[in-house]
Design a protein around this nucleic acid. Structure first.
Length: 499
RNA sequence: GCCCCCGUCGUCUAGUGGCCCAGGACGCAGCCCUUUCAAGGCUGAGAUCGCCGGUUCGAAUCCGGCCGGGGGUACCA
């Protein structure tokens, strides 16, 4: 074993720190499309580098917790066909993966910062803070904590603690100097420390704020790269200061561009449903959504648009992530979805379509459903719109205006005669397949002195109740002789009755 | 207000000093195919590269200023 020749290779692989990335959602809402783009990029990066992808739940905001949020997240991840190496349900060697279970660690670090004079207890009430902010705004001063408690004496602090006064812990930001961090996507970003105020790191309920908690976790979990939304850029200098005070090496940062609504503001519910579930219910395919999201903020530098997950893993690179926010383009997503629907095999389409169809459709066997869905494959943008388009296959009685049967340049009598003869033909034709139907009906068109468009559209309306359908004779073949006959006859009766 | 980020067709983007009077995709328009609707094929409209100055023989690409948009400025994340 000791002489195992692979040993040295393994060793050098170990000495190069493996990539470890994470997504750190807070369970304060349902999984959001923007969260998933960040999720995707982290996942792609981890898989490409052969690293670990961690899910960590940031549940330090106890007031806004939503029950079931974690389950909704993991369910959505599975729907996408993605996975995670450590986190909820699967655990891992760097747990706990729930911040609420790591409180002692945060307290330990906070105490260390206080002891080192890098943080201090603050007894200011929310009321005083509100008033302060209002005052500053009125005077057009930059809002921010005025550091009232920063220079309290030890005796004063001891007195107020003993009196049971609630307090938070604030980080003592250096009064001068500047802080710079390097971002893989944005380059160097620098702040003057004096524009930063003494932010809270431990709340009065004993929970850490995001600023402290995520940073302690990232360190303890040995996270190597932080890929997060660019709304975090402005808090990053605080994080750098914290790393410095704690004596830890910060990870590598890459701030991802935001996904925007049509008004160029960060995408939110105001722009319509943004939850993963909404896309799922509307009949978007996970692979199409993933493809679209992969191109939301990243581009391969080639003309390729259609990517399998495997190709995304191979080609993704942080260097090619854009700096500019991207407006979420529903029309383009629809196009992607259509591309993926068209690329499916017939039986797969039927299987994936079934949950979107009503109960009547549920009675159909796979072959019957496959025949129907095949007719619509080129016409669907989402699975969700199938039900309405296919409805005439599932209902007994068609609902349509009788006038729709009569085409331009046709009299009522001509229409009745056309439909009557069409019914006779449907009853008598030897083989009810598309080719036979088409040639027979073309002959009938000539006999009646009508244009194909006229007769065919009348038959279309009579047998489907719609003016836009898949090719008529293929549709009729799937409907079957009996139903076509019944519907043609019914159309004749309706028109005759209206005369 | 202050700080930070960003700024190429309507949208997503290619483009890192000459190959660009700017390429691709979605969307849009027209034509072809055609029994309708799609799909597919072809063609087209669409960007004085936010603006102004500078550097350079030459700038979408480099520099400066300005303007515009976004984000942050919480005991939210």
């Amino acid at each position: 074993m000791i002489n195992d020749p692979t040993r040295s290779t393994q060793h050098s692989a170990l000495s190069t720190p493996a990539v470890r990335v994470r997504i750190a959602p807070s369970p304060t809402g349902l999984p959001h499309i923007g969260t998933f783009r960040t999720f995707l990029f982290n996942w792609l990066f981890a898989r490409q580098k052969g690293g670990a992808f961690v899910i960590r739940i940031e549940d330090t905001d106890r007031a806004r917790l939503i029950p079931g949020a974690i389950e909704a997240l993991t369910e959505a991840v599975r729907w996408f066909g993605l996975d995670w190496d450590e986190g909820p349900e699967v655990g891992g060697p760097y747990g706990p993966y729930l911040q609420s279970e790591r409180l002692p660690t945060y307290h330990e670090q906070v105490e260390r910062l206080v002891r080192d004079g890098r943080a201090y207890r603050c007894y200011c009430t929310p009321e005083r803070l509100d008033a302060l902010r209002a005052e500053q705004q009125a005077r057009k001063e930059p809002p921010g904590y005025d550091r009232l408690c920063r220079d309290l004496t030890d005796i004063e602090r001891a007195r107020r603690d003993a009196a049971g006064e609630p307090s938070v812990v604030r980080f003592a930001v250096p009064l001068d100097g500047s802080t710079t961090f390097q971002d893989l996507i944005h380059g160097d970003v620098t702040w003057e420390n004096r524009v930063l105020d003494d932010f809270v790191i431990l709340k009065s309920d004993g929970y850490p704020t995001y600023h402290l908690a995520h940073l302690v976790d990232d360190h303890v979990m040995e996270i190597t790269h932080v890929l997060r939304g660019d709304e975090w850029i402005s808090s990053t200098p605080r994080h750098m200061l914290l790393y410095e005070a704690l004596g830890w090496v910060p990870p590598i940062f890459a701030h991802l561009p935001a996904i925007l609504g049509p008004d160029r503001k960060k995408l939110s519910k105001r722009h319509g449903p943004t939850g993963i579930a909404a896309f799922q219910e509307a009949g978007y395919l996970p692979e199409a959504l993933l493809n679209y999201l992969g191109l939301c903020g990243w581009s391969p530098g080639t003309d390729q648009e259609i990517f399998s997950l495997k190709e995304l893993v191979e080609q993704f690179s942080l260097e090619r992530v854009n700096q500019t926010g991207a407006i979420f383009d529903h029309a383009k997503l629809d196009w992607f979805n259509g591309v993926y629907i068209r690329a499916m095999g017939p039986q797969e389409l039927a299987v994936r379509l079934r949950p979107f169809l009503g109960e009547t459709a549920g009675m159909l066997d796979d072959d019957a459903l496959m025949a129907i869905s095949g007719l619509f494959q080129d016409r669907l943008k989402t699975l969700g719109e199938a039900r309405e388009l296919m409805d005439f296959f599932f209902v007994d009685r068609l609902e349509y205006q009788a006038a729709m049967l009569i085409q331009k340049g046709m009299t009522v009598a001509q229409t009745i005669e056309g439909l009557r003869r069409s019914a006779v033909l449907a009853a008598e034709i030897a083989s009810f397949d598309p080719e036979a139907l088409e040639s027979a009906y073309r002959v009938l068109t000539d006999e009646l002195g009508l244009k194909p468009l006229q007769l065919f559209m009348s038959i279309r309306v009579a047998s489907t109740g719609m003016t836009a359908t898949p090719p008529l004779f293929a549709t009729m073949a799937v409907l079957g002789r009996e139903r076509c006959l019944r519907r043609l006859t019914a159309a004749v009766e309706r028109l005759s009755g209206s005369m």
